[in-house]
Design a protein around this nucleic acid. Structure first.
Lengths: 197, 197
DNA sequence: ACGAATTTTAAACATAGGTTCAAAAAATAA
DNA sequence: TTATTTTTTGAACCTATGTTTAAAATTCGT
């Protein structure tokens, strides 16, 4: 029935979110205009307001969208029955592949601080915390099972996620290395940092 | 003579650059207004134009300023006569201490892409490349002297600098850990990744 | 095909913020 | 002090862009 309409609206919203994320990549929040977002979809900027309350609302929903994808990915890894080494490897690779293939969306997450309402900011930070927490669980498991060194979990997680997130700053689709290759090497080296020898 | 005048002018320029960097931290390039920069110094935005051609020029000079400081630091480390392990440790710590103490300036460097002229962008990227190159030299020396594993130098450098640069995203002056403590732990763990066992 | 609901448009509006400029103020030299 | 140079001011200007809105176009059920 009306769910047909609702579906169509949802789809359009997704399109807009993706377009928004794409522009956000290169321009940053303040540099992104409603005009540019809509132009990519052959719409006029006015029509954005049929789907979103305003620009801030749009960006906020960008965050929710990508965070959901990230959390889905890592949840699967954590809940799998691999050993910690394999889990950490997979988590790292997963993160890199997501960060590079969905580069647009990922970069939008870089600085959520501004322009968000207290509640929105709260929500975004909460989701991030969940994500970090999954990494902590993997590292902790590795230490428990004595396959990782006794490490400062938080520090190690910050180092790893820092290294991973920074990839967005230099990764280039048309560069010499594929995301898979990068993921392979990164996982390899970063594991060297944590596994017992 | 007039060098007195020139000095005073230079000093004022520095003040403005620092104020600009401070605002840039939290607002990003597009979010930073000439008004806010000048307000911090109890000036009016109009007077900025006595010292800088325009906003872009101002931000560009911010870049040059901080890059100079960075390069000075790492040059000293590279030219010292420590062993590669010590050098890499010191380079990492130096970077972290700079990035945290001069957080403002450092973050301004995050995304130099936009709004810069071709020449300005060229210059900034060139300086960055020099900086990376110093890290490469240290890593290379470590491999040559057989104290480091045979590594993909570029990848390792990207991992290390990524981890370091990401610190800005979460580091909090009033947080539980001092920059020194963070630097210590980071250097420790990252070294684990490269040194031969 | 017809009418109602939905979606898009294009223009108008409002405002923020970069930039300019002539005049005022302050600093300096004589 | 007086004249000249340097610095700051504050208002004016202009453009970009977020937002609103009434009308037009489209879609959809019947």
């Amino acid at each position: 029935m009306s769910s047909f309409r609702a579906q169509k609206m949802a789809k359009k919203k997704q399109e807009i979110l993706r377009s928004a994320a794409a522009v956000l990549v290169e321009k940053g929040y303040q540099g992104t205009t409603m005009e540019e977002i809509s132009a990519k979809l052959l719409m006029t900027k006015g029509s954005m307001y049929y789907y979103f309350k305003n620009k801030d609302d749009l960006l906020y929903q960008c965050h929710l969208m990508i965070m959901e994808i990230c959390l889905d990915g890592i949840e699967k890894v954590v809940d799998s029955d691999c050993n910690p080494i394999e889990k950490l490897k997979r988590a790292i690779k997963e993160h890199i592949l997501l960060a590079t293939s969905e580069k647009a969306m990922f970069m939008a997450l870089a600085k959520p601080n501004h322009n968000f309402s207290k509640e929105q900011l709260q929500e975004v930070l909460e989701l991030r915390k969940s994500y970090s927490h999954y990494f902590d669980r993997i590292i902790n498991e590795g230490i428990d099972k004595q396959v990782f060194d006794r490490l400062d979990i938080k520090m190690v997680r910050l180092i790893i996620l820092g290294a991973l997130n920074w990839i967005q700053e230099w990764y280039d689709q048309s560069g010499p290395q594929t995301a898979e290759e990068i993921a392979e090497v990164y996982a390899d080296y970063l594991l060297k940092m944590v596994v017992k020898e």
